[in-house]
Design a protein around this nucleic acid. Sequence first.
DNA 1: AGCAGAAACTAGAACGTTCTAGAAGGATCG
DNA 2: CGATCCTTCTAGAACGTTCTAGTTTCTGCT
Lengths: 337, 337
Amino acid sequence: MNQPAPPPRRTTLADVARESGVSVALASIVMRGAEGASEASRLKVKAAAQALGYRPDSRARALRSLRSGLLGVSLRLDEPFHAELVDEIYAAAEEHGYEVVLGAVGKHRSEARALEGLADSGCEAILAIAASGTRAELAAVDAGLPLVSLLREVPGIDSVCTDDASGMDQAVAHLVGLGHRRIFHLDGGDAVASAERRSAYLAAMERHSLGDLARVLPAGADEREGAAAAGRLLADPRHPAPSALVVFNDRCALGVVDALERAGLEVPADISVVGFDDSQFARLAHIGLSSVRQDVAALARAAIERAVARLAGQGPGLQWHAPALVVRNSTGIAPVS
Amino acid sequence: MNQPAPPPRRTTLADVARESGVSVALASIVMRGAEGASEASRLKVKAAAQALGYRPDSRARALRSLRSGLLGVSLRLDEPFHAELVDEIYAAAEEHGYEVVLGAVGKHRSEARALEGLADSGCEAILAIAASGTRAELAAVDAGLPLVSLLREVPGIDSVCTDDASGMDQAVAHLVGLGHRRIFHLDGGDAVASAERRSAYLAAMERHSLGDLARVLPAGADEREGAAAAGRLLADPRHPAPSALVVFNDRCALGVVDALERAGLEVPADISVVGFDDSQFARLAHIGLSSVRQDVAALARAAIERAVARLAGQGPGLQWHAPALVVRNSTGIAPVS
DNA sequence: AGCAGAAACTAGAACGTTCTAGAAGGATCG
DNA sequence: CGATCCTTCTAGAACGTTCTAGTTTCTGCT
């Protein structure tokens, strides 16, 4: 077999030190911008580093210093909305001087493995986006190093979430304001946050004295499940047709809108649809979907701040972020019936 | 300010060794499953590790051994198709005994930074998905450690791509077989692979003696740009309406289909549409989009194999993977004109 | 000139692991 | 019974960095 060629040993701090005629310790001081070096040596060392193409070895650095400066983030690869969040997390982490390490969850990689991997790679804390693990599993991770749950409230664990109750309330209020009364909810099945949104919807309907008209229909988290649910809805003779739908998330809502239009209904003339997330993704989608916007940047920032606070010795907390309804073209006044 | 609490030092190999009454070296042997330990000590050490909740520190491990066992992967967060590829890469990497480190590119993080980050974290090689950097930039990275470019052919750099020419040819052939002649291409603008697909389209049209009917219209890589391009197409009186469109990718095609249907055209009765990628994402989307499928698993596997080969001293190469047209409901026989 | 105090610098240990080289303890064999 | 060979085990160096505890050099002041 082919013997792996010995890699051309990367240049080390010792090389830089030798080249610039100073000690390794001083070179280290210069490279990490600590104080205690004269301007003259700073220049010398930096020049040498530049010349040799020196790049500090982050593993060695992390190994020695207690702080690794690493923040782990677990996310589902197949959720575009998570990706948006991660992008903001990068920005927020940088401001706090942290590097981000990603742990992907997908068909071929379980959440448990992802979290394990993050812990092993020396992260100081972990942000878990829409973690699906049980409370006990997450608590076990949290025992090892601070865990912040994003988009899902987990009792006993630091959580940063959107206030689904407020979001649902805004959606329902908006529709009621347009004259709708028969407002149904298509839920997210067993997706994270589905239960919360479901009960938030019921509470909102109750609050508008429409409790007896409330209906929850099972749907899911993606386009196909949305389209399927819309199909079932139209075919089902048991209940009178709704004039508006509040859907678990944007992807599902997109499927719903599409299925409705295919069936010959006009959105919003015949039926209004509200999504949830206001994902970039849904904004792109031609259809101007009215949606409950989660403040991605604020969520990201808050999550990082919670992690930093935990690292500073603070206990876990729970944070709600207010969403804001964004009205576009998928909602309109209720048809006269 | 709040002083960071001293983290509760994680248990180390030395702890395990002490607990089980053996040397650190032996404990190491057991933990990494190397040979040279008796069954008895294996049991002892494993038990102790279990009891103490020991988890090896991957940084220390990587620092010492020449092989880090790490493979870096850069990807765009806002491209769901990249996510699919990454998931397969996880699977393939595992088979080869490698761990995957992700380097995300997004609004707040440039590709250069992502690649730098991967190199610094000690990856042995890097897979860059749809790298946007110039040839020189990528060559510079490749000088440091093996780089494999996925989805984009970069001269002089190891590349694993889909054979766009074949894909386009299948798409055009399929449409021609259905009686279409006026087949236009909506391109990807400045997206990676856009130029390749554009010329592949032109070549395919030529091959079917339809060169003089070929038209390339500027579009883009996402839904909105697709919808916009479709709008422009319908409004433009300069050329006779096409009976079929071959679109840069699925996302764009979805926007196109939607805009066409909104404009009152029926797909495929009035006009056929073919996408490219056959992304999971597009498959979900209710609309059954006919699309040129890139073999994600094969691409992932091949990329990993190239990386491993490079690590074993082999020179860079170029690999084409044959795509396969998947016919669904967005293509049909040409309308009589 | 002498001295204190700061500023600049350095030797060497440490981080947690793997790896090399070799030591101890049996077996096997002539 | 001594030599030879496994097998099992261990001490200690090494990886590239940071950190601690000095040591040297500079500066200003009497």
